[in-house]
Design a protein around this nucleic acid. Structure first.
Lengths: 252, 252
DNA sequence: AGCATTAGTGTACGTCTGATACTTTCTCTC
DNA sequence: GAGAGAAAGTATCAGACGTACACTAATGCT
């Protein structure tokens, strides 16, 4: 409708540039209220629990009223994602490697707190103010290196993608268990079931894997969280090693 | 119900161990037919297009009839995922690095052909025969290295997660565009829009990025596919570098 | 004072998953 | 060779969801 500086409406909403509208009936609702209510529901019921009727009801309005403020459910999801991400913490570190490590762990902490964030479909490249702030943090960490822009973005996306992927996978598996079974127990059962199904002639390596002790009892006093942390770090350090190679290579 | 070897029903269906049932009315439908129909619909309409009524209708049955064969929609998705993945191609290669690279590209090709595969929620660890076959292929490639099991699985998951993540991201963005706009054009618009929104005081690095020429015209004769391939390779080679470091380290 | 403008509502439609209780069609046993 | 019993497929139904459309209600500008 309006065109303050040729910025489209969804972006204006993302960046909080909505003018309060000087004519007609004043709104008792605004984007931020709607988004906050939606986030609260997602925190409680997951992403599928977020429906327009439920969000509206939690605010004492009808479903259709929301469309005055968000345009579509997909847009609501985008707004929720940026709001729920929040600003990045301070990750000041002595070197790029420690900085990126902290960045990854900080992002992971946010996603673990709100696993539904990892399932919001990306409607476009990162565009929200919080997303940009996280981006800034990662770029700042790498600003001392000799990497070019493409590699900086590549490294950042790789890490960020890894974090998303690993948290989503972990939370999907945790949901799949659902009963009181812990990760360690589930892995043991998994290993045993597949040891019976996997034919050593067709799948020699996999058979060796499933008859190895890898899935059997971890010392049992190891909490699930520690296993998950170790798995996560293993992949992350691998990525950081790769980035290190690249940095060393661009420094003659 | 039955208990051939204490293998639960969903796994029996995955591995094609269904006994034809010797009593009662014989089935005119079976799991494979249902799954094949569902896959065909997913290929045409995406994952959200797969609904029990539609699958049933395409076979000339009613929705409820499917429950005789699949148990739940989630189970159907799991079955679809393994069926659609298909067996891995031959990726024989002179060394682990080339082998993993081919493995990654092969997986990417499958996912690009069926982007909905990247959105099937993981109901459990990889358990289907095709998933195991792909696993076998990756493990075989690494069998010459000195990595321990944990690192082999870690490397494999990292690559596989990267492939999934990057194809999903790419296809989500492509859907988001929807109009005839290509990737290059969209990136240019994105860069310009954000150059206006990003305040250089709050986000100095990001501002430099968006005012850099990175998002501006790639030579314009570069097809979208080539951009995507280059982005994908950049991340993949980074990961492979990381694995190389790890392999070198375990070889004294 | 009253009109253009904006906020929020009511209703309706087509869609989905899955529960329950049924009819139909087959094989195995007597 | 005839039913008994078991499994396959159906009919109907309830509760939800997203959103299009046309409506009423409330306000500030002129």
């Amino acid at each position: 409708m309006t065109s303050d500086d040729f910025v489209p409406a969804p972006l204006r909403r993302l960046w909080g540039m909505s003018e309060p509208a000087r004519l007609g009936r004043p709104a008792s609702l605004d984007v931020n209220v709607v988004v906050a209510a939606a986030v609260k529901i997602a925190d409680r019921d997951g992403l599928d629990g977020v429906t327009l009727p439920k969000v509206a009801k939690s605010l004492g309005f009808t479903s259709m009223s929301l469309y005055r403020h968000v345009g579509s459910k997909d847009e609501l999801l985008t707004l929720m994602a940026d709001a729920a991400l929040g600003p990045p913490p301070d990750i000041a570190a002595p070197d790029w490697r420690e900085g990126l490590r902290r960045w990854a762990f900080a992002q992971r902490a946010v996603f673990q707190r709100r696993p539904w964030l990892t399932r919001v479909p990306a409607a476009g490249p990162p565009s929200g103010p919080h997303q940009i702030a996280w981006m800034e943090a990662a770029l700042a960490v790498m600003s001392g290196t000799l990497l070019d822009w493409a590699h900086r973005i590549g490294a950042m996306s790789l890490i960020s993608g890894y974090v998303v992927q690993s948290v989503r996978q972990y939370s999907e598996l945790a949901e799949g268990r659902a009963d009181g079974q812990g990760q360690a127990d589930a892995e043991r059962d998994y290993g045993r079931a597949l040891a019976r199904l996997v034919n050593p002639d067709r799948f020699p390596e996999a058979a060796r894997l499933f008859s190895s002790t890898l899935f059997e009892a971890p010392p049992s006093d190891t909490p699930d969280e520690a296993i998950a942390d170790a798995d996560f770090s293993l992949g992350l350090e691998l990525i950081l090693d790769g980035i290190a190679v690249r940095i060393a290579r661009s420094d003659p």
